[in-house]
């Protein structure tokens, strides 16, 4: 599987990663070689095999509907890059 530079740009955008133009070609090479490795999966016919999402094939445990958390806003916001009046702030979003 060989990716094109355009593919790498699209993936980087989807993943919201800034990639320096100078590095794009290296990513094209690296990602393509990883995909070659990954393509080895196709050597085996796995049609009809039930996918395994969790190694233990367990089922979900449910918790009671109880409020157990208290307000820790000050503690949580102490590590935030930009807060004001209790809000997290980001550059203006235009809808």
């Amino acid at each position: 599987m060989t990716l094109k530079t355009e593919d790498v740009r699209n993936i980087a955008h989807l993943a919201r990663l800034h990639i320096d133009e100078a590095d794009i070609e290296q990513y094209v090479t690296d990602l393509s070689s990883i995909l070659d490795l990954v393509d080895e999966m196709n050597r085996v016919d796995s049609s009809g095999v039930t996918p395994l999402a969790n190694p233990l094939d367990a089922t979900q445990r449910l918790r009671d509907d109880e409020v157990t958390e208290t307000d820790q806003r000050d503690k949580f916001q102490r590590i935030a890059p930009d807060v004001e009046q209790g809000f997290y702030r980001v550059p203006k979003v235009i809808e």
Partner: peptide
């Protein structure tokens, strides 16, 4: 008041995990 009812799980803090509410 804003963000006073957002716990570590709601904030997506690194390392937190979801557990499903039975009532839901």
């Amino acid at each position: 008041a804003p963000n006073t009812q957002a716990c570590a799980v709601d904030l997506g803090m690194p390392g937190v995990l979801p557990v499903l509410n039975r009532e839901v």
